[in-house]
Structure formats: structure tokens, C-alpha cells
């Protein structure tokens, strides 16, 4: 199966460790993620100003590229890109006045009416491949690893583009169990990671991060898994700031879900770009003997 794929700028640079294992894992499951031949930034953050149509141009152009490919479905792995693209798509589908304005402005492009379906990679795993099939393909079950799934905001909010209802969320849980690991659900799973506050207001940011880490640890997690490069930056790279501030916190390795999936499918550390992770990721995987068993 071939499917159009939108990686996003961060996945091509600082978060290659999300992109590469994802592409490799899907390949192992018989799906070719075909990167759009021409794509631009998704717009990063969906603008909430009602009359700010200019910031919709970027995501809508990306969706037009999908149509140009003769496709009608787009898989996105990065939660933020997913959120921005899906919301822009919804607006183009539902708001005829704004759709007209945007289409007119982009006269060099074909008209777009929301024909594309924007799908997050997690949903795609469940709906198009299926947990059963994934389970059959697992070569290195992550047995004994206690993983806390961290959704953050953009997978679940707003409701119109949520990949599942926040109060009945099972996607991460099902994936973790499919890979043979143990789920540690924790109350801060859907809290905000502090997002860009970490740059403009680092004290508040680090406090927020500390609370999330503390929550996960208190429920017995050995690792956190996420699907967002910004969450990973805050919880992973900035974790040392939190550890420095709070003695009782322990190091908690953070992963992208694509890395764990690639490992479980037996693809080894080569495709995982662990050098871009932080906080004892490799040490944990080695101690569990997940790196050698393939």
C-alpha cells in the first residue's frame, strides 16, 4: 500500500528520530509512506484570530499538493502538523466564505474544497493496518517496559479534530500493548507540556514539565512516549532543568512512538536515530535487552 505522507519541517531536521523510524516501521508493515514532492511548512500553529486567513495559506497549499498527487488521504506523524492541517482542512470544508477568499487569493493553485482526509499516523495504524496485523509482525516484544503515554494537547483538542475522545482514549494504550509493553496511564497524560512558554517564560515551563514528570513517575512509569516534537523537547531536552530544580525527580527517558514501534518490529537501533533523544534512552533500551534481540 502507498499513502501520501507529510513529515513536517521538524521531522526533517531536529526530529529525524521520529521520521526515520516511522517510515521504516510502516515499510516493515507493508506500507510505503510517500512524502509529498512539494510541501511547505504546515503553519506550525493554527491561528485563532477569526480574520487571519493569511496563516491558512500554508496548510491549504499542502493539502492541494495531495490532490495534485491524485490522492485523497494524507498521513501525518507530527501531532502539531496534524492539528494545523486538520483544522485548516475542516475550515475549507465547512466555511464557504473563507474558502472562497482563500481560493481566490491563491489563484495560481487549483481550488480546494476540503477533499482530502487528514489522518494521524496513530489512527492510520489502528484503522488501516490493525492491531492484529501489527502484533503478528512484532519481533522484539517490549516485554516488561512500563510506558506512560503522553498525548499533550494537539492530538485531542479541539474536539473537531481529536483523534479520539479524550475521556475514552485508547490509541496509545492499544499500541503499547500490541508492542508487548505495559501501559502506565497517568493523570497528566493530556496536560499541556507548556508549549512555547518554555522559551518566553522558562520558569513556568519547567514547573509544568516537572509536574508531568512527577505524575508519570509516581504511577510507576519507566519511559514516556509522545508523538509531538515540541512535547519531546519540553519533556526530554529540558528535563535536565526540571531535574536540577526538583531533587525528588528521577530521569525519565522520552521516546517517539515511532521509535518504539520500529524497535518492536525488530528494525534495530539503526533506524531510530537515538542520538537525537535525551535522558538515558539507549541505557534503558540496553538494560531491557531490546537492542540486541533482533
Amino acid at each position: 500500500m502507498k499513502i501520501s505522507y507529510y513529515p513536517g519541517c521538524t521531522l526533517k531536521t531536529k526530529a529525524k528520530n521520529m521520521d526515520c523510524p516511522g517510515v521504516a516501521a510502516l515499510n516493515a508493515l507493508g506500507v510505503e509512506l510517500v512524502e509529498l514532492p512539494r510541501w511547505n511548512c504546515c503553519g506550525a500553529v493554527f491561528s485563532l484570530a477569526d480574520d487571519d486567513l493569511l496563516h491558512l495559506l500554508a496548510p491549504v497549499r499542502d493539502l492541494i499538493r495531495v490532490v495534485e498527487q491524485g490522492d485523497n488521504k494524507l498521513v501525518v506523524a507530527c501531532s502539531m502538523c496534524y492539528n494545523t492541517l486538520a483544522r485548516a482542512n475542516l475550515l475549507m470544508r465547512e466555511n464557504s466564505e473563507k474558502r472562497h477568499t482563500i481560493n481566490t487569493f491563491m489563484e495560481e493553485e487549483r481550488d480546494y474544497n476540503g477533499e482530502v482526509e487528514v489522518v494521524h499516523l496513530l489512527s492510520f495504524l489502528r484503522d488501516e493496518i490493525g492491531w492484529e496485523k501489527i502484533k503478528e509482525s512484532i519481533k522484539v516484544p517490549l516485554r516488561g517496559l512500563k510506558i506512560a503515554p503522553y498525548y499533550g494537547c494537539t492530538l485531542l483538542r479541539p474536539q473537531s479534530v481529536a483523534i479520539e475522545p479524550p475521556e475514552k482514549r485508547t490509541l496509545f494504550k492499544d499500541l503499547i500493548e500490541t508492542m508487548g509493553a505495559t501501559v502506565v496511564d497517568f493523570p497528566a497524560s493530556t496536560d499541556c507540556c507548556s508549549s512555547y512558554q518554555i522559551l518566553s517564560n522558562p520558569d513556568i515551563g519547567i514547573e509544568t514539565v516537572s509536574k508531568i514528570l512527577e505524575s508519570a513517575e509516581s504511577w510507576g512509569a519507566e519511559a514516556i512516549v509522545t508523538s509531538c516534537p515540541l512535547c519531546e523537547y519540553n519533556l526530554g531536552k529540558r528535563q535536565e532543568d526540571a531535574l536540577r530544580k526538583h531533587d525528588k525527580l528521577k530521569e525519565l527517558p522520552t521516546f517517539y512512538f515511532t521509535q518504539l514501534l520500529a524497535l518492536a518490529l525488530g528494525l534495530g537501533a539503526e533506524v531510530c536515530n537515538f542520538e537525537l533523544n535525551h535522558n538515558g534512552v539507549v541505557r534503558l533500551m540496553e538494560s531491557k535487552k531490546f537492542l540486541t534481540a533482533a
Partner: peptide, 21 residues
Amino acid sequence: VACNACTKVCPMDISVMDYIS
């Protein structure tokens, strides 16, 4: 913001927005 004005003004028909991307 991908307004593409850069591409439109290029006298050499270069896809400026695409190469910036």
C-alpha cells in the same frame, strides 16, 4: 506564511517558495 508572492515576482520563474521550504 506561504503566500507565494516571492515565486510570483521572480523574473526567472524560479519556485522561490519551494526552495525556501
